[in-house]
Design a binder for these strands. Structure first.
Lengths: 264, 264
DNA sequence: AACAACTGTGTAAGCCGTCTACTATTTCTC
DNA sequence: GAGAAATAGTAGACGGCTTACACAGTTGTT
């Protein structure tokens, strides 16, 4: 590790350096997410807080009120410091978001060895559940894709899919297919709650959802978009226990498609 | 149309009313997107501008510099008015974004009647291309889902898929599957440009992409995430003309899965 | 034709967010 | 113990969203 030379007040960004490559060119937060920061040889007072603590508080706020609540002023206020003190730990808001998202991914599940299809389905279901439990993760822009936990999930799936004998690129494409479905399915579920979830909601929310339904139905039909209108007000869509969940249905189709490709 | 009674300075939101339902409970921009606004019986001066003009300017800005550039101050400056004058036309930033997104969707393509599979593939490819040509559309939060153009796309696809004889809910699920793939595939393409696109980029961007690749490879391998590392630096992934595009590959798997379901 | 009501625009301001100097203080090292 | 270095605080710039108010212009009514 090359110790920094430049004196004066600097931010956490200046602590991120490397052996040879110029990490300054990396997207914000990427180096930090992979733990590539210079933590040795500090001289001044010990930091009163830590990046982990900041991320934990930001996670609390995001869990409570969504990703927008994880702002630097609010995190700082909850910790008990001023906003700018956070810049000693995190070089920018973007970096905080990247770290936040990586932490929210968590560790991938252990997948069984034998049946690739069963393992892939388990993977997708677990990811789907994770997105449902942390909806704000869907709001994190996906410009920076690979962080440690993120990559661990992908690695687990690729390892499983690799046992089918597909080419590496096709394996990756299949992995993205399942990742996409988990993400998009969770987003859809969030936007269109199940009847059971709707019954648990506030009366205000219930009324709002109903108002949207009525409004959309009238508008759709007045524009002759009857196919959509019919699908949306389908009795199955409003039934209590959907006979076949949308996520599971799509997952089965995708796995069928992959299986057909593998067996050819 | 019930004319407004309340006097005093009011925003564009107050113009959105209805026959009987309370549109005030609708999400911001939804009523405006469907054109349900009270445009009759104005008394004051003619507006010097229009909502269409504002959306067009915002689209320009988004095309040039991304969705963040479509801010009210910048739109107002380009039109030549103050920021707050926009609130006579649009009730909030969220409403502007909804209108912007709906306009960007545009009209769906005309789909052939005979072969549902070919028609669905065409639909997905067209949507994919549309997302590529307007990448900022991927950054629009999808909380408000159904706006006129949006719904027209969905209607076209559902109509085609309905010819397979599937149940309404399954048709909708399949439609979401294809929508998801187009959206997510375009997002992936944007984040990981093709070699050809990379060669067209700035030297700075090329260097940045290469730095990320080198960094990720070393980090992935040092954490034993070799499956991901191998997949990413696969020769096929870096080849000039990919033998099978990721989007097309996934599309074929999805359509295969749907076809197998239909034929059963 | 004159008045009143209403609408569009500008000015000003408040609030929140990110981020950058600068200062004071604490702590580690020599 | 003295100096150096890092941390936290203060102040502030800058941009974005939004509201309140005053003014000017237009339209409908008397």
């Amino acid at each position: 590790m090359t110790p920094r030379k430049s004196p004066g007040p600097d931010s956490a960004r200046d602590r991120a350096n490397a052996d040879d490559a110029d990490f300054g060119a990396l997207p914000p937060g990427l180096a930090a997410a992979w733990g590539v920061v210079d933590t040795g040889g500090r001289r001044g007072p010990k930091p009163a807080h830590s990046v982990e603590k900041i991320i934990a508080v930001a996670t609390e706020l995001a869990d409570e009120e969504g990703i927008a609540a994880a702002s630097l002023p609010r995190v700082a206020a909850r910790i008990g410091v001023t906003t700018n003190a956070l810049y000693r730990y995190v070089s920018s808001k973007d970096e905080l978001i990247v770290l936040l998202a990586d932490r929210a991914w968590g560790d991938p599940p252990a997948l069984p060895d034998g049946d690739w299809r069963e393992a892939a389905a388990l993977w997708a279901r677990q990811l789907f559940e994770r997105f449902l439990s942390r909806p704000w993760l869907l709001d994190v822009p996906t410009t920076v894709s690979l962080t440690p936990h993120n990559a661990a999930w992908l690695d687990a799936l690729i390892t499983v899919l690799g046992s089918t004998g597909m080419a590496a690129q096709q394996t990756l494409n299949c992995a993205y297919l399942l990742d996409s479905h988990a993400r998009y399915g969770a987003n859809l579920r969030r936007n269109t709650p199940t009847p059971a979830a709707l019954r648990r909601a506030n009366p205000d929310q219930q009324r709002a959802v109903r108002a949207v339904r009525v409004f959309l139905d009238s508008q759709l039909r007045s524009r002759n978009l009857n196919a959509v209108a019919d699908a949306i007000e389908d009795p199955m869509f409003l039934a209590d226990e959907a006979p076949l969940d949308g996520f599971e249905f799509g997952l089965a189709r995708i796995l069928d498609g992959i299986e057909a490709y593998v067996q050819r």
